[in-house]
């Protein structure tokens, strides 16, 4: 449990105690002190607890465990542990090229002003499909994967800018940067999650620290 969660739980419990006191003895609100107590207990603390709760839930929704908590995502989680460097997400995950606890979020949230909001709205659709509809199999992206999500980290990196494959044709780099030449659908980095191949795959076993 993180420090923030502990503080939030303390705020919630303290609020409940204060409110319970008012519920049991509402007559104390007749005094000036009671009115102030009611204002704090029934407005300030619940608003604070609610705001902190929203923040906590949004932060948690960025975690890999959260994304993989739905059954339909299990194979995508397993694909992060494939022992094969040609699997792009697996390499990023195993070599700490993305934070492991936010692996999905790092590559699948648009790095734009409303990226987070759009992700949450799409998440609502996913919950609907999970309980009331039928999740599409296999899962597909809403739109072609944007190179921007790769360039967020790779742009300017020597391995990217000076790679032979990227510099052989002088047009290649500029086309990648303009999202005209996809990193993932061309034959260069096209082994992504490939969950259909997991039956034959071997998996990396993380050494205990």
């Amino acid at each position: 449990m993180t420090g923030n969660t502990t503080i939030l739980i303390a705020v919630i419990l303290f609020s409940i105690v204060l409110i319970a006191w008012l519920v049991l003895r509402p007559s104390i609100t007749a005094t000036r002190g009671g009115k102030m107590l009611a204002f704090v207990a029934l407005l300030i603390f619940p608003a604070l607890a609610g705001g902190m709760g929203v923040n906590r839930h949004i932060e948690r929704s960025k975690t890999t465990n959260f994304c993989l908590s739905c059954h339909v995502m299990e194979d995508y989680g397993r694909s992060l542990r494939v022992d094969d460097r040609s699997f792009v997400p697996a390499t990023h995950f195993q070599y700490n090229l993305v934070p492991r606890d936010q692996a999905c979020y790092t590559c699948h949230t648009d790095y734009t002003m409303y990226g987070d909001v759009n992700a949450k709205l799409r998440g609502l659709k996913h919950v609907y499909a999970y309980y009331l509809g039928k999740p599409s199999q296999p899962i597909k992206l809403y739109q072609p994967y944007n190179n921007r999500e790769c360039l967020h980290c790779h742009l300017g990196a020597r391995g990217f800018e000076e790679s032979e494959a990227h510099t052989k044709d002088p047009q290649t780099l500029s086309r990648i940067k303009a999202n005209q030449l996809s990193c993932s659908t061309t034959e260069c980095h096209n082994i992504i999650h490939n969950v259909g191949q997991l039956k034959e795959a071997t998996f990396w076993k993380e050494q205990a620290k």
Partner: peptide, 22 residues
């Protein structure tokens, strides 16, 4: 108001322990 707020806070407390979109 107090009863509703306590119920809401209890819902918040329970959901904080559960890491799932639901």
């Amino acid at each position: 108001a107090g009863i509703l707020l306590i119920a809401g806070l209890l819902v918040e407390l329970v959901t904080l322990r559960w890491s799932h979109p639901t």
